[in-house]
């Protein structure tokens, strides 16, 4: 990785050989508008919004063009501005104007590039507007697909391919009829999609959006309680209720990734039927009890069944340390090796 210096709009910036122009710009805090690029994924070069001019002659896309020592890049060349603006205008002319009620309002990449290129109502009025009227795919219990808001950047497709290796979705049909779909264009719930939601969090618009999303008032960092992996999460809290879960990109364990349970399975926390205290059977009925009472009862019963008549089955939802303690307890205290775990397959 040899260091090189390139110039972007007159500003000399350091970069590393092998970087793209866009990566070099972002590493130096410069914004080049883009839609189909995502730092976790290989560049696709499809949205054409990140066009720049190189060395005063060649139009190139900054997300795929590698840097070269002494390269002179312009993001404000008149030809670049025109191509970029027309491209964004085309996208907006085919996009619903329902921003105010849109889930991604204020956090939408299309809005961001539209603002950056300086989209004016007078520019937009020149175009023939057309918004797709395809039915939304509501088959998945956790998220919805709204083709009208899809800009076909392909980030979801590449996420499913490059990060998850599931390949549940791809481009379907061709040309203006292209859309993101599953094998045979069936509802997403009937595909091999595992509902991990990795595509949903990367979607630059609200084409993929989680269901029943409530904006949190604050965020709390935590660790997912589902299994021993220990993914870092950011719980969205509103009042005393958890209203959403995000993967914690700073957490070294998962780097932001989550599975379907960790991302969408948080409703048990506030569920009215959730067990909050131990239940002890008295006269054939389960009755709430204090922990001391319940533990005393367990200790008493366990001590009558030591040896081979005892077996322990541990859960994946507790930590490795707790699992270690259970097997130790089973062998050393209960005197048997009959110990198993639900996630040993």
């Amino acid at each position: 990785m040899n260091p090189v210096t390139i110039t972007i709009d007159g500003l000399a910036i350091p970069a590393q050989e092998g970087m793209t122009i866009l990566q070099a710009a972002q590493a130096n805090g410069l914004y080049i508008p883009n839609l189909c690029n995502h730092p976790d994924l290989d560049p696709a070069g499809l949205c054409r919004v990140c066009v720049v001019k190189i060395d005063d002659w060649k139009i190139a896309i900054s997300c795929k063009q590698p840097v070269k020592e002494g390269m002179v890049v312009s993001t404000e060349d008149p030809e670049v501005q025109r191509v970029r603006k027309n491209t964004v205008e085309l996208l907006v002319a085919n996009h619903p104007m329902t921003c105010l009620t849109c889930e991604r309002d204020g956090n939408c990449e299309l809005q961001r590039v539209a603002r950056y290129v300086g989209l004016e109502p007078t520019d937009l009025n020149r175009y023939r507007r057309s918004v797709r009227s395809l039915p939304m795919d509501r088959s998945n219990p956790f998220f919805e697909i709204d083709h009208a808001k899809c800009i076909l950047c392909g980030i979801c497709v590449r996420t499913c391919d490059e990060i998850q290796n599931i390949n549940a979705i791809d481009f379907v049909k061709r040309g203006v009829a292209s859309l993101i779909g599953t094998m045979g264009n069936k509802p997403i719930a009937e595909s091999r999609c595992e509902s991990c939601g990795e595509c949903v969090v990367r979607c630059p618009t609200a084409a993929l959006s989680p269901r029943h999303r409530v904006q949190p008032m604050r965020e709390v960092k935590s660790i997912c309680s589902y299994c021993g992996v220990g993914c870092g999460i950011r719980l969205g809290v509103r009042g005393d209720q958890i209203v959403g879960v995000q993967g914690d990109r700073e957490n070294p364990v998962n780097g932001g990734s989550l599975c379907v349970k960790g991302r969408f399975g948080y409703h048990f926390i506030n569920h009215p039927e959730r067990l909050q205290k131990p239940l002890v059977r008295k006269d054939g009925e389960l009755v709430e009890a204090e922990w001391d009472e319940a533990l005393d009862l367990i200790a008493e019963k366990f001590s009558q069944h030591k040896g081979e008549q005892f077996a322990a089955l541990a859960s994946a939802r507790i930590t490795n340390e707790d699992n270690y303690l259970i097997q130790k307890f089973t062998r050393a205290v209960m005197g048997t090796n009959t110990i198993d775990h639900c996630a040993r397959l």
Partner: peptide
């Protein structure tokens, strides 16, 4: 049009 890039598709 194959539909992959915006300028050609739209």
């Amino acid at each position: 049009s194959c539909g992959q890039c915006v300028p050609c598709r739209l």
